[in-house]
Design a binder for these strands. Structure first.
Lengths: 109, 109
DNA sequence: CTTTTATATAACTTGACTGTTATATAACTT
DNA sequence: AAGTTATATAACAGTCAAGTTATATAAAAG
């Protein structure tokens, strides 16, 4: 599963937001959702697998941290699409400039 | 379905990339995938629904364009998380500064 | 007006994902 | 060592999304 697919789930997106604020244990995270503890645990596993979060042990607890590296992956994709998209208008502009230049050289109409 | 969820599907992500390059008809898009025409048609409907693309008629064809507005939605979410995340280090910095200042004022150890 | 071309919709199947309860693991507490 | 706390895993059920084939629509071409 990709980082993007992982974030498509609203619970996981919210978990990521929570972890942006501060590190939290699995239990702390679970308190904010009306679903069972195992469900949260599996969401956390998914987020670990796509490297959106990391976990460290603290006695019985597992404390989760956001790993913002995965954001870059998404950001880069969006940015790349935007860059390609913008390039279209650049070349359209060049084309229109060329047409305008031709008109000037060759006289009206 | 959110724009993020729509892009989580690899076929749709690829379609968006293709449309960033240039507008294409539904058929043109379909040629690039090993799946049936109806499957492509439904992916396009999903992309239309989340406003990632628009379609205009050209005789029997439907020509699809990227609508990069929806990118902003994703970008904003990612940026917001990053901003919150970065703020953590700002306040950590402030804390460390405060500790350092105290030390200077109060003498060593 | 019948046929062809391009795309969309309908009905259905299948597989993956999210939730559940029950149970295992692992560390702290007494 | 026995009990408690925190989290993970197993097994299973329901939902939903993505694929399929068959069919409908709509414009072009003959």
């Amino acid at each position: 599963m990709s980082a993007l697919a992982a974030l498509a789930d609203p619970v996981r997106a919210r978990i990521v937001e929570m972890l942006a604020e501060r590190d939290r244990s699995a239990g702390e995270i679970g308190e904010h959702f009306p679903i069972s503890q195992p469900a949260i645990s599996r969401h956390l596993r998914v987020l670990r697998n796509v490297r959106l979060v990391t976990a460290r042990g603290d006695a019985q607890r597992r404390v989760y941290s956001l790993d913002p590296t995965a954001f870059d992956e998404i950001d880069e994709w969006v940015t790349r699409c935007r860059r390609i998209w913008n390039r279209r208008f650049d070349s359209l502009e060049r084309h229109l400039d060329a047409v305008a230049a031709k008109k000037s050289r060759g006289g009206e109409k």
